[in-house]
Design a protein around this nucleic acid. Structure first.
Length: 341
DNA sequence: AAAACCGTCAACCGCGCGTTT
DNA sequence: GAAACGCGCGGTTGACGGTTT
């Protein structure tokens, strides 16, 4: 049985909103709120619109403090940093950019930022890395995860201004996450998108989010940027990160962005003794070491072989021409941390 | 001047998940 | 426990305006 439609499609208006509709919706919500029921709202507000459409219009356009227009370098940086780490989880990224909506960021990424990053690479590297054939199934080794692993999570942030720039010498600026597995939080969005009051709130929410929505599947510990690969039945190959599938394109950009972030941001999600690395690069050395504690088959990609990745990283193709090169290298480590939050 | 092409972005759609009944 | 419901998310579409040919 198919899903029942959310509204009577025949009797709802579609397409662009008129100023009259906007003001009706705005007035109603300002007066009565959403009432926690978007489906019923349009009728109450006298609108011939689907509830979902009203919700979208309100969230993306009408609600107060929406920011439109150009994205700042700061915002670019945050988007890239988070994309490199968590992929296209636009709602989470939007939560770090007050006034911006997930839709905005998604559009901005797809139409501008992605190209901006591409443009930073030499032409030969602008294509996403090739996908392996179906027969290149990686020799997965699974490792059961203890439930405590979920709780022992922190996010470490590495600054290039650490006293020792080599990876082994990086010191994490970490905030422990006191995640309670019986949390009733259902999604980050419920935590008031846009507005995590501080680093800890965000981290906590991030962890809750991943534990709820992306539990590590199949008893596999899955690393982020360059590690693992699964082959689906149709022969396509997907990378798994944080227990979710990552598309080919996203995967390619993760490595691109990692380059871009080389001089600026490093951060790592630590699950117990197993690290999941985002925004990596020099992390690779450390990553290699950490494999002793987590998933580690052979690196499945030709392109993504460790040496290839290292080479890509060491070439500095992106970082020398970085999108983020306006960072004041004299900033303190603590100041730099704030870029993330 | 007009057609073709391209980029942007608001809006739609389907799905997954949590909650309620 | 199952079904129905509603919300939120991410991917995609299509209208529109600008640019190029």
């Amino acid at each position: 049985m198919g899903r029942a439609p959310c509204c009577d499609k025949a009797n709802v208006k579609k397409g662009p909103w008129s100023p009259e509709e906007d003001s009706k919706l705005k007035e109603y919500i300002e007066k009565y709120g959403t009432g926690g029921n978007w489906i019923a709202l349009p009728q109450k507000a006298g609108l011939k619109r689907c509830g979902k459409s009203c919700r979208l219009r309100w969230l993306n356009y009408l609600r107060p403090n929406i920011k439109h227009g150009e994205f700042s370098d700061e915002e670019d940086r945050i988007i890239c940093t988070l994309f490199a780490s968590i992929g296209s989880r636009w709602s989470i990224i939007a939560a770090q950019l007050p006034g911006r909506t997930d839709n905005d960021i998604k559009n901005y990424w797809n139409t501008k930022l992605k190209k901006k990053l591409m443009g930073m690479l030499p032409p030969s590297q602008r294509k996403p890395p090739p996908f392996p054939n179906s027969h290149q199934t990686p020799p997965f080794q699974s490792q059961p995860l203890s439930s405590t692993l979920y709780k022992e999570c922190s996010l470490s942030y590495y600054s290039p201004t650490s006293t020792n720039k080599s990876f082994s010498g990086l010191e994490p600026i970490s905030v422990p996450l006191n995640f309670s597995s019986n949390s009733t939080t259902t999604s980050l969005a419920n935590n008031n998108p846009c507005l995590f009051q501080n680093q800890e709130t965000w981290l906590s929410s991030m962890q809750q989010y991943y534990n709820h929505h992306h539990p590590v599947k199949e008893n596999l510990l899955m690393f982020g940027s360059e590690g693992s690969c699964s082959t689906s039945s149709d022969g396509s190959c997907t990378q798994i990160s944080y227990g979710r599938e990552i598309k080919q394109e996203e995967m390619g950009f993760q490595s691109y962005i990692s380059n871009g972030l080389e001089e600026n941001h490093k951060f790592m999600l630590n699950y117990g003794s197993n690290n999941i690395i985002g925004g990596g690069d020099q992390n690779m050395n450390h990553w290699t070491n950490e494999r002793a504690n987590g998933y580690f088959g052979e690196i499945p990609f030709d392109y993504h072989g460790l040496e290839d990745v290292k080479q890509l990283i060491s070439s500095n193709n992106v970082s020398n021409n970085s999108l983020f090169n306006n960072i004041d290298e004299n900033k303190t480590q603590q100041e730099k941390v704030t870029y993330l939050y």
